[in-house]
Design a protein around this nucleic acid. Structure first.
Lengths: 188, 188
DNA sequence: GTCCTCATGTAACGGGTTACATGATTCT
DNA sequence: AGAATCATGTAACCCGTTACATGAGGAC
């Protein structure tokens, strides 16, 4: 009965695609799953050491000229097994915390215009996210059309897009609602 | 330039509505902002002590028969000021982490049917959330129609609904997509 | 000349959860 | 009889981020 940090399974999963260094893992995350997952070096490197100690991962060191040694990690059989086991387990629902909504909840105490600024910033962020998702989608369709994992990647992308669109819609609606002045109380 | 833990501002904000005990705060959170914010007692109680030390909050003790003393906390002027300052500051975007999407991303390695199970569970959860949101909305409209904060509470509810609907739609779509067998590769 | 990329790591801290401990009262 | 509610708290732990340190080579 595993079920540990999640980060570890993210790392194991990525290493199941191909052997990589910690640095590569970070880059990979940033260009593929960044819309729903992030890791910092300060988490990745110590984690890789722990995984090595636990024999879930194997380290091969490549010496390089002018650069630090490069540690390339690959999954062991135990690592793959642990990963697969985690994969099938029920999903732990993730923590819900939205600082934006928290502020809006108390929005009556905001100075005039400030609520709209918060919403507007959010709208911009969501728009940017949507653009990034579209970019990723096009990239995948162009360069990885035959990749066996494509279907699953698209699945996650699609969720990102739908949710971002919903958030965007909400931001727009709400801005309209709050920018119209005669609207302090319920609409009539 | 404050900007500390967020939890502290959640607590200060709630106390700005009316004086309460730690226990009350927890209850309040569960019945009003649970869809985007949660706190545990293990966080609330120590936090209230710290806030008291920092004079952001004042403690009044009510003795009770057969129950532990009840500590009722209220905002001090400094507390209110700190809260208002935080309220106007730019929103820190919250951590993105979805264990579900992480598993789906690696979905090719799931045993047959397991992916659908994950999706189906998610669908159920989102449906339940939607129901709860509707319940809250109706309760608010019935019992707090005149509350000066209603507009802001509705704003957050609306976001919850739109996002939950988007997630639901995605879950349904994806289930259809994956339950249809002749569909292992791209649709044709 | 300066910035970016490659590449690894550590230390300090932050912020939070879970589980445990306690115990009377009231509801079913 | 047993569960839920009221009510507070602590200790252990976990998980993660930020900031710092180091340094060569290539791009502009």
């Amino acid at each position: 009965m595993p079920s540990r940090s999640s980060s570890r399974y993210a790392v194991l999963g990525i290493l199941s695609l191909e052997p990589m260094s910690g640095y590569d893992i970070k880059k990979f995350i940033e260009t593929s799953v960044a819309h729903f997952w992030r890791e910092s070096y300060g988490n990745i490197y110590p984690l890789l050491n722990r995984l090595t100690d636990e024999k879930l991962v194997r380290r091969r060191t490549e010496r390089q000229k002018g650069k630090p040694d490069r540690h390339v990690y690959s999954l062991t059989d135990r690592g793959r097994a642990a990963f697969l086991e985690w994969l099938g387990e029920p999903v732990k629902e993730d923590a819900v915390r939205s600082e934006l909504l928290l502020k809006l909840f108390f929005g009556r105490h905001l100075e005039p215009g400030r609520l709209e600024v918060h919403l507007e910033e959010y709208r911009v962020v969501q728009t940017r996210i949507l653009g990034a998702l579209r970019g990723t989608r096009e990239m995948l369709e162009a360069h990885h059309a035959e990749h066996p994992d494509l279907r699953y990647w698209m699945l996650t992308l699609r969720r990102g897009e739908l949710v971002a669109r919903a958030r965007l819609q909400w931001a727009r609606e709400s801005l309209q609602d709050f920018r119209r002045p005669g609207n302090k109380e319920k609409e009539s």
